[in-house]
């Protein structure tokens, strides 16, 4: 049985999203990490657009536009500027070696698919097979945040997690109501702006963005 073209395209985009999550896990150069994040945002935007076209849910068009502006243009540009200003172009160290992280990532994907099975079976939307992928990319971003030592990759991991969550919303329910999406987008934007200010302060205080310096507070 062959699926309609739109579903096939959506599945393709979902696969691209997952692939990009893996690429981000393995990428050690910061600027490439930002471009990967922008590409992930673009895949999310296309997926939203496609669902909007097939389901004729008008609010999804706005959602797609919001994703395009915020996650493909504004945030990557902001991060790009910041990386240049802070002059942190160097390679990012990871806590584990890359092949090890990849293996862990594969385990996480299997777990995510298993978790999503009972829910996907209930879903009536054309996008139901994608929920597992969405959950997998959330967990992969989580893994990325855990394994990175520097501040900027952690923030990119945080934003990638938000991408995965939006993808989950689209795949499970055709997106959240517009007012909520706007609220979430605003929170993310403000959060990144605050972190931007933070980077400079951390740098001023510690002369680096290495989070090793931020492990002083603990109970003896």
């Amino acid at each position: 049985m062959s699926l309609p073209l739109s579903s096939q395209l959506l599945n393709l985009l979902a696969a691209v999203l997952l692939l990009l999550s893996f690429a981000m896990l393995a990428q050690r150069r910061l600027l490439s990490l930002v471009s990967l994040f922008a590409m992930q945002g673009f895949a999310l935007c296309l997926a939203t657009l496609l669902v909007a076209l097939t389901s004729t849910q008008t609010h999804l068009f706005y959602s797609a536009a919001l994703t395009l502006v915020l996650k493909v243009i504004v945030l990557p540009y902001f991060l790009y500027r910041m990386i240049h200003k802070l002059e942190v172009l160097w390679d990012v160290e990871t806590l584990l070696n890359i092949p090890m992280i990849m293996l862990l990532g594969i385990v996480l994907v299997v777990i995510a698919f298993n978790l999503a099975v009972p829910i996907s079976q209930l879903s009536s939307t054309i996008t139901r097979s994608m929920l597992g992928i969405a959950l997998a990319s959330v967990l992969l971003s989580f893994l990325m945040m855990i394994t990175r030592r520097k501040a900027i990759p952690q923030v990119i991991g945080f934003l990638a997690m938000e991408n995965g969550l939006f993808f989950a919303a689209i795949s499970a329910t055709y997106g959240m109501p517009m007012i909520i999406e706007l609220g979430i987008a605003l929170d993310v934007l403000v959060g990144v702006l605050i972190l931007g200010v933070f980077f400079f302060q951390i740098r001023e205080q510690f002369d680096s963005l290495d989070l090793e310096h931020l492990e002083k507070l603990r109970d003896e």
Partner: peptide, 8 residues
């Protein structure tokens, strides 16, 4: 430094 760490 301590307050930055706490906030982060």
């Amino acid at each position: 430094p301590a307050s930055l760490e706490a906030a982060w």
